[in-house]
Nucleic acid binder design. Structure first.
Ligand SMILES: NC(=O)c1ccc[n+]([C@@H]2O[C@H](COP(=O)([O-])OP(=O)(O)OC[C@H]3O[C@@H](n4cnc5c(N)ncnc54)[C@H](O)[C@@H]3O)[C@@H](O)[C@H]2O)c1
Ligand SMILES: NC(=O)c1ccc[n+]([C@@H]2O[C@H](COP(=O)([O-])OP(=O)(O)OC[C@H]3O[C@@H](n4cnc5c(N)ncnc54)[C@H](O)[C@@H]3O)[C@@H](O)[C@H]2O)c1
Lengths: 213, 213
DNA sequence: ATCACACTGTTAATTATTTCACATAGAATA
DNA sequence: TATTCTATGTGAAATAATTAACAGTGTGAT
């Protein structure tokens, strides 16, 4: 019933964030809130909030604001969060392990069900309930488990090669932490988190602020 | 000589990325490249590249494309990367340690010079050449070392409190990994990396692609 | 020395995102 | 029941970001 054609990327990001925040508030016993309250929590404007929530098709009952439970449910639907999706993580290094142990405690609809490495000393280790397989078994395992998504945390110069393996294994979405843009067909959605760049950006704008004062 | 008023955030991010990529290419012996080559490497359009590089004020010599060395230097200037900035990292957990050991091997103008935790068992440990101090010494240490920036990797419910400590210690830029938006005055630039949200976004668009095919 | 070519720098057009502003709705009050 | 009042949903306006288009330029070929 939802699904116009095309919710903006930025809105999707914010919806995911609203959902997490709202779930937290619900657990604290809060039942209703207004756009300006959510705006306060998330550090943006009430207008933005309303426009974002509009995309979910949820209709509040005006005077009392949004009913948190229903809203969360509606965001779930919108984000297709109702469907379970399985994730593979490739590269059990420092970052990979951090993400693995963090993420699998958090989530419901998404979970990391297998990890891969090319280092034999890591194969068969179990971290956060998730076993590490050798990279050579990647395709078989992904097909066997019906895994849809992947997180890449291998060194930069291996990222493209790993991405291509994931592609031929049938993965449709990749989140890449390696500092290298991936060349992939449009039939795969891929996004990158570039921590170094993010720090450099903070450095730039912080130093700009310092100069202006 | 550069510094119009206000290079867009997105451009700053891309410039930082171009710089890293170009530095790599230079080390491999490449001296010149065209906007369409850099576009190929970074997975975007030549027009975008040219527009971004325009902001640095660098002028290429038409027929041969950009001289990589000079271009990197110009990006350095633009990103104020010439000035050294010191960084503090708060929260030596899984993620904090991963970032610390990664980042301090990488960079020249930016480095993490101190870390902080409230867990006594972590205090005084040295990771990647960086000593961990007790959080109660945060303000003193930051002032003593002249630290400008901070990375927050503490659990969500401590992030705001830590951010406020950083604020009163005089920090002007924060990169926050906790899944909580921070309330801070405009005199501090703060950005957030939200890994969970990023995965959810990939899940959304990947499943959208699957449906459309 | 001249020409032709391929790529740049930049302005203009397009597209995406955010903000504004207001008519509408529906609880609460009397 | 009628009235008031605050917050919503949404078109329209404003702003930001990307893409296209093209005149200009220096290089290498002739
Ligand atoms: N650690 C960080 O905070 C951080 C920050 C920014 C970016 N990154 C990027 O994330 C990636 C991982 O960083 P890290 O610090 O965890 O590195 P790491 O060296 O600790 O881990 C890399 C892991 O990948 C495995 N690996 C290497 N080649 C492989 C292959 N072909 N197939 C499967 N596994 C392979 C290695 O065995 C190792 O376990 C790197 O690309 C790094 O640039 C990390
Ligand atoms: N690990 C990940 O991949 C990941 C992914 C997404 C988000 N995050 C976020 O990053 C943050 C850190 O994650 P983590 O997995 O490293 O957690 P962690 O529990 O391993 O580490 C947290 C560290 O912060 C310290 N700490 C707690 N309160 C503190 C305080 N008041 N002052 C100073 N130090 C304090 C703890 O002692 C611990 O060392 C969390 O907010 C988490 O939500 C982590």
């Amino acid at each position: 019933m939802n699904s116009k054609k095309g919710i903006p990327e930025k809105t999707i990001e914010r919806l995911a964030m609203y959902r997490r925040l709202l779930s937290g508030l619900k657990e604290k016993g809060l039942e209703h809130l207004y756009s300006h309250q959510l705006a306060e929590f998330t550090r943006n404007t009430p207008a933005q909030i309303r426009r974002d929530l509009m995309m979910t098709g949820y209709v509040s009952n005006a005077r009392k604001g949004y009913t948190i439970g229903d809203l969360v449910k509606k965001i779930d639907e919108t984000l297709a969060g109702s469907q379970r999706q399985k994730i593979a993580l490739v590269g059990i290094g420092n970052l990979g392990r951090a993400i693995l142990s963090y993420f699998n405690n958090q989530h419901s609809a998404l979970s990391i069900v297998a990890s891969f490495d090319n280092d034999d000393t890591k194969v068969n280790r179990v971290i956060a309930g998730c076993r590490c397989y050798h990279i050579k078994d990647l395709e078989a395992k992904i097909k066997e488990e019906g895994i849809d998504l992947a997180i890449i945390t291998v060194p930069g110069h291996h990222a493209q090669e790993v991405a291509e393996k994931l592609e031929s294994a049938g993965i449709t979405g990749i989140l890449n932490f390696a500092p290298v843009p991936l060349k992939l067909p449009d039939s795969i959605y891929s996004d990158r988190i570039d921590i170094t760049t993010a720090i450099e950006k903070v450095a730039y704008f912080a130093s700009k602020i310092r100069k202006e004062l």
